[in-house]
Each structure stands twice: as structure tokens, then as C-alpha cells.
Measured scan of single mutants.
Amino acid sequence: MQNSHSGVNQLGGVFVNGRPLPDSTRQKIVELAHSGARPCDISRILQVSNGCVSKILGRYYETGSIRPRAIGGSKPRVATPEVVSKIAQYKRECPSIFAWEIRDRLLSEGVCTNDNIPSVSSINRVLRNLASEKQQMGADGMYDKLRMLNGQTGSWGTRPGWYPGTSVPGQPTQDGCQQQEGGGENTNSISSNGEDSDEAQMRLQLKRKLQRNRTSFTQEQIEALEKEFERTHYPDVFARERLAAKIDLPEARIQVWFSNRRAKWRREEKLRNQRRQASNTPSHIPISSSFSTSVYQPIPQPTTPVSSFTSGSMLGRTDTALTNTYSALPPMPSFTMANNLPMQPPVPSQTSSYSCMLPTSPSVNGRSYDTYTPPHMQTHMNSQPMGTSGTTSTGLISPGVSVPVQVPGSEPDMSQYWPRLQ
């Protein structure tokens, strides 16, 4: 039975679970980093996980050691009161100082060594604690504590007292930064006198190289990059290397530039699409467009005044059976039934097929058609009795279509119309 579990990581490298990497692998990681390889490249070359490479390099940059820390136990506290007071002093002298600059000053002034120097995250935590204590304490208590930490007896009751030896409130920041720059020169002199001055200088240079600022491109470089971006948004590694040799930039910087440029292009394309949609959409909808001609068919113009009344309900007709019959029939052209047409008796099958359309009241044959006459024609229609054979009435077949029909004066039988409509 094995005491430890061995495995293979996602890159194909072998590791022992819970145990640190061998010293030979750690040394190779540092050597590759000094030669300029990126952590992701080191991870692929040595088949070590990216997190492990970053952790080893980060500890090497901070402490200069590649040895693993002790497994188990607690780390001794490195942010001692003396170190905290120095950090507060540096922050007062130059409020814009960075944590890694404070760390360098602690090393250069001999406050800490490589073994007990606090990390950048520890210094940031100390600065946050100082800021929170400043908010919790009152103004007087804060000034007393700062005077105690600074070891001075001057008056701290006013704002300019934060910067000793100065009279203009805006000047101390520059003086403090100048003092810090002077301390940086002392850093070089002190570290050069040490035993491991060369190694420390190499480590600091490598650290500065990794902690780079934003790349500033010249106009020629920007023009070359934009020209390549117009050709393709995704250049391959050969195109990037050719462009890197042409404009004297690292291939990694060119790759990052193209990634950022593609993101910018997507944002601009989104804005262009929004403007295009806004320009195509009308600002207001016309009133006429809300009524579609496919839904509402136009009603033909009436030929006679009587045809303006298109349904039985508008003429005072309360018989719903006839109203439904007229509205359900398709529109037909106007025609006239003459008196000489043969009077065919209704076929029983045809009569039964339209039995649902006729009223059940037996008085329908005896009703006159003056009910369908509009009010303004009552006088004219009353002067001509319906009993004469020459009287013409208008029957409504569908809305908007008038059918003048000659009705025999002897017997106005409704059943004569249905064979004609089939």
C-alpha cells in the first residue's frame, strides 16, 4: 500500500499530492522566468500547473527564495509595531506611495530583511487598517496617535501638521516623493554593498519588468496595427511575429492590442446598429396606417339613396333571421326581375335548405315592403301603392349592394327569390 497518492495534472505532468515540487523543477521555473518566458509558457514547457508556477515565482520575487514554506503551523507575524509605524510614516510623507514602493524602502533602510519582509498584500492590509482606524477615531485622537508614531512633539492640530517642515499644504506631496526618490538612490547604494547585491538587483529588475506600465504606442505603430486590423481581426502567430519585427513591439503586446481592438470594434458596431435601427424607425405612426385595407374592405359607393341603408337594423327591421341572411350572402350585381318571367313554384328541397333563413311567422307573405323604405322617402312611396304591378321595390342582398326588384302586385311571395340566388 502506497503512503502517498501520485497523479497526472491537466498538462500531463506527474505530481505527488500534498508534497511540494522538487527543487530542480523550481530552479528551472526561475531560470525560464529570467530568460523572459511568460508564466503560461513555463507552465506548458515544464508541465506544471499555472497556479503552481505563479505561486513559486511570486514567492521568489518577494523573498528571493525558491524553497517551499513549512507545511503546517502558523507563519510568524511580520507586521510588527515597528514595521507598522514605518509604513504609516512613509504614507504620511508621500500619500500616493504604492505598497511595493513601501516594501522596497523597508528593505533599503534595513527595517526588514528578506526573511521577515511583509508581502505587498500585508502592507496593503496595514494601510487599510490605518485608514479604518482613522475613520473610527476622532480628529484629536487621530492626531495624537500619528504624533506618537512619528515621534515628534510638534502641533498636529492642523492639517499642514501632517507634513512636517512644510508650510504650503500643496507642497508636502512633492517633497515626500522627492525624499522617497532619494531613498531609492540609497536603495541602490545599500544593496550594492550587501553580499547578495547582484541577486537582489536582478530580482528587482525582473520584478519591475513584470510590473509594467501601460504600453505607449507611437503613431507609426498605431498606423501599422490599424492597417493589419483592417486586413483581418484575428491575425495568426506568423502575422503577429512579422508585425512585431516590423514595428519593434513584443508579440504578446500585439496580441493584447488586437484583443482590445476587437472589443472596441464590437462596441462601435453595436452603436452603429442602434443608430441604423433608430433612423429606419419613423418618429410617429401615421393615422391612416393604423387601418389596414386588408382588414377593412372598402364599401362601394351607393348608386341610389335607398342603398345607403345596408342592414335591417338601420331600417328599423327587427327580424334577425333576414338580417343574418342578407349579411351572409355574397355580393351580387344589380339585376331586375321582369313581370314576364315565369313564376316557378319553389322546389321543396330548395325551400327546406333555406328554411332556417325565413321567419317562422306566416304573415311574411302579407307584409308590405314599406318597412324598408327610409324616412325621407315615405311620402313618395305612399303616393304609389304597392298593389300595382309596376311598383318597384329595392331588396338588399349584402352591405353596400342594392338590387332593384320588380315585385308582382298580386302576391309578394318571398319564396320566388331563392331559386334565382343559387
Rank of each mutant, 00 (worst) to 15 (best):
S4Q: 09
S4D: 11
H5G: 10
S6A: 13
S6P: 13
N9D: 02
N9V: 01
N9R: 02
N9H: 01
G13R: 09
V14Y: 08
F15Q: 03
F15W: 05
V16Q: 06
V16N: 09
V16P: 04
R19F: 03
R19N: 04
P20D: 04
P20Y: 00
P20G: 01
L21A: 06
L21R: 02
L21D: 02
D23Y: 07
T25M: 11
R26D: 00
R26S: 01
Q27R: 08
E31R: 12
A33I: 04
H34C: 08
S35V: 15
S35D: 15
G36D: 06
R38W: 05
R38T: 05
P39H: 09
P39T: 12
C40K: 08
C40H: 05
I42R: 02
S43R: 03
S43Q: 03
R44C: 06
R44Y: 10
Q47H: 09
V48M: 00
V48I: 14
V48F: 01
S49C: 02
S49L: 03
C52I: 02
C52K: 01
V53A: 02
L57A: 00
G58L: 15
G58V: 12
R59F: 04
R59N: 05
Y60A: 03
Y60C: 04
Y61R: 04
Y61K: 05
Y61E: 05
Y61A: 14
T63N: 08
G64W: 03
G64L: 06
G64A: 05
S65D: 15
I66R: 04
I66T: 14
R67C: 12
R67W: 09
I71L: 07
G73M: 00
K75I: 08
K75D: 03
P76T: 05
P76W: 03
V78T: 04
A79R: 07
P81M: 08
P81H: 12
V84P: 02
K86V: 14
K86F: 10
I87C: 15
A88N: 13
Q89M: 08
Y90D: 04
K91Q: 04
K91E: 05
R92N: 15
R92L: 13
E93R: 12
C94H: 15
I97R: 06
F98E: 02
F98R: 11
F98S: 06
W100G: 05
W100A: 07
W100M: 06
W100F: 09
W100T: 06
W100R: 04
E101F: 08
E101P: 02
I102C: 03
I102G: 01
R103I: 15
R103V: 11
R103G: 15
D104P: 04
R105V: 13
L106I: 07
L106M: 13
L106P: 01
S108F: 10
S108Q: 13
S108V: 11
E109N: 10
E109K: 11
V111W: 14
V111D: 14
C112M: 05
C112A: 13
C112E: 06
N114L: 13
N114K: 08
N114I: 10
D115N: 08
D115E: 11
D115W: 10
P118F: 02
P118G: 08
P118M: 14
P118H: 03
V120K: 00
V120R: 01
L127G: 13
R128T: 04
L130K: 07
A131G: 12
A131T: 09
S132V: 08
K134T: 11
K134L: 12
Q135N: 10
G138C: 14
A139H: 09
A139G: 14
G141S: 11
M142L: 13
M142G: 08
M142P: 08
M142K: 10
Y143F: 12
Y143D: 13
D144K: 08
K145Q: 10
K145Y: 07
L146A: 08
R147K: 14
M148I: 07
L149A: 08
N150T: 13
